[in-house]
């Protein structure tokens, strides 16, 4: 464990807490893409299948449980909570995310570390996570001005993978046989997808203006 990875995990946790706060405090999920939440639930379920077979550390196991439970709770809340689900932007959240799932699955079958069930699921989860934010970014562009908590949620979610890239660079230089180009390339693509969001987020912070993504 290094400071970059720990900071990345904490940033990821903060993004989920901010989202939970937004939904709980405003009893609304307007501006939140349910499709991105469903993709993330799939990412965690596919990536953490080893939660019962591979014990790495208490921290690792607890974080996996927190990520799976919180994301499933958010999806349930956006689908089932009679108050929250009314504020879901159903007509704006129209990204065809099934294509993302299919593409990630095909790519995982072609490019993986080992042709085993678990490794292919892991590669699938890595590729899917890279594109999981797309429905959310499209929804932000369509829904005009973005409320603060939603903006912070997306910001922290994008920042966490950027910190992981620093973690991989650090491990590359400090661990002899460290090579994980699948996660690295995918992590770079994932972080790059946030580039324009980060730009407009920085502008809104600098000009102390409301965050607004151009349509």
């Amino acid at each position: 464990m290094n400071i970059f990875r720990f900071a990345g995990d904490m940033t990821h946790l903060i993004s989920i807490l901010v989202l939970l706060l937004k939904i709980y405090a405003t009893k609304s999920c307007s501006g939140i893409s349910r499709k991105t939440q469903e993709l993330y639930a799939l990412v965690f379920l596919a990536r953490y299948v080893d939660i019962f077979t591979e014990f790495i550390s208490v921290y690792n196991t607890i974080m996996k449980i927190v990520f799976i439970a919180s994301t499933l709770a958010i999806v349930w809340c956006m689908r089932g909570h009679r108050v929250v689900r009314r504020s879901y932007d159903k007509e704006l959240d129209t990204f065809r995310h099934y294509f993302l799932i299919a593409a990630s699955l095909v790519l995982a079958l072609l490019v993986h570390e080992k042709f085993t069930f678990q490794e292919i699921l892991w590669a699938f989860s890595i590729y899917l996570e890279a594109v999981a934010i797309l429905p959310q970014l499209v929804l932000l562009q369509r829904s005009g001005n973005v409320d603060n908590l939603t903006g912070q949620y997306v910001f922290f979610l994008g920042a966490y993978r950027g910190l992981y890239i620093l973690n991989w660079i650090y491990r590359y230089f400090t661990e002899p046989h460290f090579s994980r180009w699948i996660a690295c390339v995918s992590g770079l693509v994932q972080t790059a997808l946030y580039a324009d969001f980060f730009y407009y987020y920085f502008l809104s912070w600098k000009n102390n203006a409301k965050l607004k993504l151009p349509a």
């Binding site: 995990d9 790495i56 550390s57 690792n60």
Partner: peptide, 10 residues
Amino acid sequence: KKKTSFKDEL
């Protein structure tokens, strides 16, 4: 063989 340490990440 020890599992690749890589899967120790979230």
